[in-house]
Nucleic acid binder design. Structure first.
Lengths: 196, 196
DNA sequence: TTCATTAGTGAATGAATATTCATTTATATT
DNA sequence: AATATAAATGAATATTCATTCACTAATGAA
């Protein structure tokens, strides 16, 4: 039996992400992907059932990889302030170090693959994040409100900042660089609001 | 000379938005749009130069329509607290009352049309929002930081909440409804942080 | 009413695109 | 080394899709 070339599989995955981001869903085709990989189109159909399967699998794999990074060194039992800061650190790092994947996931979020993506994120984060929030409420570190509100206040500004940074677009005219200082000063404002 | 049927033009626009959201960029085709409208494909090419032109024009028109709503009753000279609340009110109303358009714009944001969309929003908002921020800083209602940081802290949570609501996905398991109470309690947390 | 002009159409057309197939090639096992 | 098995391929195939074209139908202007 002949073994599947792992490097080739990885190459396909990497190029797929690159092309999806570069061309968007509109422009992404199996033939372009094959050409970009220097591989026969038929090979893609050995790895994946069809185009949909390819996008979905690569998408979900990346979601899982990113999620794992986001939960590194995060302890649901830690104090709210400490836990939130760890989350920020992880998420910022994750997105800044994986800009292509982050953009692809953004695209998937606002596409017909939305549901699957959301479900996967939900399954992974529900338990640790839920427990963390529950603890914080019990310790009276934050007031009780729907989990969605917390999520939005806690991470909304972060993702917004990261989006500006990734898209390289500046509201102020001046070039916008996402320094630690900028990141933390914005967060600081939110933190002040979250602390009891 | 024969006049163009305005109702038909409007129908095409409306159905285009519906189909783009329902099928995503991957699934949206001129033939499907024509069929959904009960119109010949060729007719679409009377209204628009090509598929790209159709998407771009409809997208930008909607961006402008939404922007106008977002700036209703907004006075750059008002106090920071008042102005920000007005912006929240407008943006929430805008998105809750135009869910399809909002979703389409989200899709455009993370597609290859990104640049044009961003540029248009930028042109419309730069002046009023810039002046508003400038005033707030001068009056020492908020501390000085990049416009992007303000934007993110001020609107990040809102858009995040609205996204949960639109996507009907709940982190907590319990159904999530975006009541005024939820909206304002989340904002309140942010506002506490923004106020000096 | 007549006419010129543009709206609107149904049926092509040709280019892409997703997918398959008949072979060839590499390699793990014997 | 021989063999079996699956990987990999290049060239089809069948389908879908954007766009065009030859033609008909309205309608504003004269």
């Amino acid at each position: 039996m002949r073994a599947r070339d792992i490097n080739k599989v990885e190459l396909v995955k990497q190029k797929a992400i690159e092309l999806l981001v570069e061309l968007g869903f509109e422009g992404f085709t199996m033939n372009k992907l094959a050409k970009a990989c220097g591989v026969s189109v038929a090979t893609l159909y050995i790895y994946y059932k069809d185009k949909d399967d390819l996008i979905q699998n690569i998408g979900l794999e990346e979601v899982q990889r990113m999620s794992a990074i986001m939960l590194e060194d995060f302890d649901p039992e830690s104090s709210f302030s400490e836990g939130l800061r760890q989350q920020w650190k992880n998420r910022a790092k994750c997105i800044l170090e994986n800009p292509l994947t982050a953009q692809m996931i953004e695209q998937l979020r606002s596409s017909t693959y939305q549901e699957k993506i959301f479900q996967t994120f939900g399954e992974i984060f529900k338990e640790p994040l839920g427990k963390f929030m529950h603890n914080a409420i019990e310790r009276e570190e934050i007031v009780d409100m729907p989990l969605e509100s917390y999520w939005s206040v806690a991470f909304g500004p972060l993702y917004s900042l990261l989006r500006f940074h990734n898209e390289g677009k500046s509201l102020s005219g001046k070039p916008f660089v996402l320094t630690d200082e900028v990141l933390w000063s914005a967060f600081d404002v939110v933190l002040k609001g979250l602390k009891k």
